[in-house]
Amino acid sequence: MADERPEFFESGHRACGGCGPALAGRLIMKAAGENTIVVASTGCMEVFSTPYPETAWKTPWIHSLFQNAAAVASGIESSIKMQGRDEKVVVIAGDGATFDIGVLCISGAFERGHDITYICYDNEAYMNTGIQRSGATPYDASTTTSPAGKNSTGNSRPKKDMPAILAAHGAPYVATASIAYPTDMMKKVEKAINTKGPCYLQVHAPCCTGWGFDGAKTMEIGKAAINSGLWVNFEMEEGTVTKVKKVKRVPVDDYLKSQKRFRHLFKPEPKTEEIAKIQAIADKNAEKYGTDIVPKN
């Protein structure tokens, strides 16, 4: 059965074939509906969806700068509240704008308690400018600013825990989702939009170009990330984790091997020490959120 809800993200955008963020944009808009004002920051989605004079968006949509989407959204929210209107304000921004460049404005908007929904589509690097590392890039991923080579095994820092930072602001609803599970993701978008106050949703959106895999595998990679424990789908209400996607966890090796950005970990021979470090990150995630399915005796 097809989902009958109308589309507000139009065909003809210029994303790569099999683009995770494009699918994220489409699903977010399907869930958000017509009564939505979208605020975008600079990033891949902004560039591929709105090359002037074209736009893929069918709701009001505004882009100002890289760093200030949360501030623009704050202003719009305050204004429509004053006017007694009921549109929902949704920010859709990439991980670079969220984890690095926009943190100041996001922190301000969440502290002031605006009734906005901030959605970060997380493709784990600055893809639009040519794959530079961001605060969301996972440990050991090779990017153009953290290239793997003789003296480096790629990005030297682990992924920043952005949901925890925003939960610490007192956000009523913080969640993570993945495009690999569209129904779950759309439910979370709806929940975030219908929860009063500043809510944060972080959507895992695999990037075939930046991560180095075939565009047909976008969903498969998303599922593999969750099955390895390197991405956790959870919901946090009032700072407490209330729901976690449980998985039969598999070793991280297959997930890493399927992407060019981790290829250096297996060539010329497997760097077992580094792979063990990544496995430890997955183990820690699983322990922290309790994702493992424990067999009943």
């Binding site: 139009e10 065909s11 003809g12 955008h13 210029r14 969806s49 709105t50 002037y52 004079p53 074209e54 736009t55 893929a56 968006w57 069918k58 709701t59």
Partner: peptide
């Protein structure tokens, strides 16, 4: 500004 959804002009 642009007309809503006019990316359809671009036949990908």
């Amino acid at each position: 500004s642009a007309r809503p959804g006019n990316a359809r002009d671009n036949k990908t």
